[in-house]
Design a binder for these strands. Structure first.
Lengths: 190, 190
DNA sequence: CGCGTTTCGTGACAACGTCACGATATAGTT
DNA sequence: AACTATATCGTGACGTTGTCACGAAACGCG
């Protein structure tokens, strides 16, 4: 007897997509429930039924981002040269952050004061790091690196993260050449 | 003939201090013009006369933060051991970020969608980096490090930045011991 | 005591997150 | 075919934010 339900998982996905799109185009400032609901051709209460509150929507974008990053990193296959593979991972990481700067901000900074990733959300990041740990392990086995793989991966991720953040903020240099050089130098040093 | 002016540089400083305090205590979410004006015992229009808009106030906090950081770093004097001095700089940097996490977020992330540090604001960061560059140069002269001092400093700052960001987000590990170990390992590797 | 000028803060406006509640659509019943 | 019952929808409201126009207030001088 009721009317047909419109707030389905499909609408939820449409809202997710709209949220990612609005974020990429307008930045965190344009990330409003009204605008996103409008972009998905629905009303704001639908957002609240499907995601709880705005932070819930940000949370989904957060996970969406880590999913995409994991896919990109996994796409850099493994060759016979573990060191080159590890370096390729770093390049892919850098490329992802530069291609999706706003998304990266949601993942690694906290542009929204209401969404604060807690212990549950950290799992999203560690799934990505596991991928890196595996590549580091291969380098250790090949004798190219020494130390604990997890510790090394942490350091490497932190370095990449810091470099990427600096690059986005145009803090790493003005010319493309010097930015590239600093990336290479830092990664090599590590 | 007019009434006495209250919106003086003194009030401006009081607002700056109030802003820093409110930020530290309530985070970016509590950083509202009303609250800050109230904490400085004035009205919101005073904020707009003295700072233009909220972003202007954030901007001041941003500079305040870099000033404080520079003071802390300079406080670690130079001894006869350039390498130890450089390491001390890293420790001080880390300590500052941990002691003022919200302030650090304003300086290095972008928790406020309205304030986006442009070319002018980058000078604040480079004054801090110059201090680091000098220490790196001393290490190079002592033969402990090789390469271009500015490039090395950039890499070092990026690494420290990434580690600090990860530590604040509790991404670097759960126990104090492993966080410390990862800091030391990463810095040593560099 | 009043006047002119400068300065102040109250109150308004638009936009935001959020949700109560009346409007709407549908299947079954008569 | 009309009606009812009910699950579902979106309009409109509330409190809060950044921002600023404009009337109220304070002061030195006549």
């Amino acid at each position: 007897m009721p009317r047909r339900k419109l707030r389905t998982p499909e609408l939820k996905q449409r809202l997710r997509d709209a949220a990612v799109e609005v974020l990429a185009e307008q930045g965190p400032g344009g990330f409003t429930t009204r605008r996103i609901a409008g972009a998905a051709e629905t009303s704001t209460p639908a957002v609240y039924e499907l995601f709880g509150d705005r932070a819930g929507l940000v949370r989904e974008v957060f996970f969406e981002g880590f999913g995409a990053l994991r896919v990109r990193l996994a796409a850099t296959g493994e060759t016979g040269d573990p060191t080159a593979d590890l370096r390729a991972l770093g390049s892919a990481y850098r490329a992802f952050i530069n291609a999706n700067p706003q998304l990266a901000r949601v993942m690694f900074s906290r542009p929204f004061s209401d969404f604060d990733p807690g212990p549950d959300e950290l799992g999203a990041g560690s799934s990505v790091r596991e991928l890196i740990v595996r590549r580091v392990e291969r380098c250790i086995e090949a004798g190219a690196i020494e130390g604990d793989a997890i510790d090394v991966a942490h350091g490497l991720v932190a370095l990449i993260q810091g470099l990427a953040e600096a690059e986005i903020s145009r803090r790493l240099g003005t010319s493309r050449a010097s930015v590239d050089r600093r990336w290479d130098l830092a990664i090599d040093a590590m």
